[in-house]
């Protein structure tokens, strides 16, 4: 090997090392996944083979001399040698062609291989690996899990910190705003499927409604207005929804989370989409734990 080849290989090595360093710094385990490993192998192959083969021929410009029989023809002064094929090239052509036949007929037979089959296997393997592992996860684990799901699935609407992006979605640092409560009092609500069924509009009005809304939005601390009695029949004296008969107005409890994630919800702020079938039961539990942690 001469200087040019060594320089080219060194360049290839730097590129590969830089790639691996960046990926590893992001907590990605290259050897932990078949696809990662093949990709990195492919990247190495591109860099190394190109460096090696191109410099091999460029070196011949320094070391070799042109030779061979010239063909009779000549175009605008350009001649052509009758040289044989470079053997490495010819064998590689033959080899890749034979390999392609093997690949298409035996390796991944065109009549039998199915990528959906492969997907189903991937999901099975995944479930085996993770689902049993976290079936009985403790609260701390659920909290961490919830956070990572939240950042991917919910943060685009509710914001990274759960503050609802200044009124563009539910603010998880509290339960509800006055505006939200008033809107429900005025318009009623019938979308979540609580045992109590629907909430009719106009359960309170005027100053009563204002007082109730202030009280509920304040986290039901302080003095309870007398008019809250209108609500207590369904939501309970403490506003906690009487064990899931109606929504808990004080906390994001399990029932509320389950129903909201399943059905979605349209309110004064906007519409929250349903996450039905998009989260597993464990993930849903984790979500609840995490959302609850935000309001405390």
């Amino acid at each position: 090997m001469n200087a040019l080849t060594i320089k080219a290989l060194a360049f290839a090595a730097i590129l590969i090392i830089a790639t691996i360093a960046v990926v590893t710094s992001l907590d990605i385990d290259i050897m932990g996944d078949f696809v990662y490993a093949v990709t990195m192998g492919g990247a190495i192959a591109i860099a190394v083979i190109t460096a090696f083969v191109t410099t091999k021929y460029i070196n011949q410009m320094k070391t070799d001399t042109p030779s061979g029989d010239l063909a009779d023809e000549n175009w605008d002064g350009i001649g052509e040698y009758e040289n044989e094929l470079p053997s490495g090239w010819a064998y590689a052509f033959l080899a890749t062609f034979l390999w392609s036949m093997w690949y298409g007929f035996l390796g991944y037979p065109t009549n039998a291989y199915s990528q959906i089959g492969e997907y189903n296997e991937e999901v099975l393997a995944y479930n085996e690996k993770f689902e049993s592992l976290h079936k009985n996860a403790d609260a701390a684990t659920l909290l961490e899990m919830g956070e990572s799901i939240y950042l991917v699935q919910c943060a685009p609407c509710h914001g990274n910190t759960g503050d609802g992006l200044s009124g563009k979605a539910q603010d998880f640092t509290g339960r509800m705003t006055k505006e939200q409560v008033l809107y429900v009092i005025n318009n009623g609500s019938n979308q979540l499927g609580y045992p109590m069924g629907m909430m009719p509009p106009g359960m309170a009005a005027g100053k009563d409604a204002e007082d109730i809304a202030t009280y509920v939005a304040g986290g039901m601390q302080g003095e309870k207005p007398a008019s809250f009695a209108a609500c207590a029949s369904c939501h309970g004296e403490d506003g906690k929804g009487m064990n899931g008969m109606a929504p808990n107005l004080a906390q994001y409890d399990d029932t509320l989370m389950t129903l909201v994630l399943e059905k979605g919800k349209k309110g004064v702020i906007g519409t929250m989409p349903s996450f039905k079938d998009r989260l597993t039961p464990v993930q849903q539990k984790a979500m609840t734990v995490y959302i609850q942690s935000l309001s405390n």
């Binding site: 990926v23 990605i28 990709t39 993770f130 592992l133 684990t141 961490e144 990572s148 991917v152």
Partner: peptide, 21 residues
């Protein structure tokens, strides 16, 4: 290569490790 691997990465709980952004 970085982005392609990040899209695919899962954390120790099997959930997607990175949000799109």
């Amino acid at each position: 290569i970085t982005q392609g691997m990040m899209w695919r990465a899962v954390d120790e709980y099997g959930n997607l490790m990175y949000s799109f952004i």
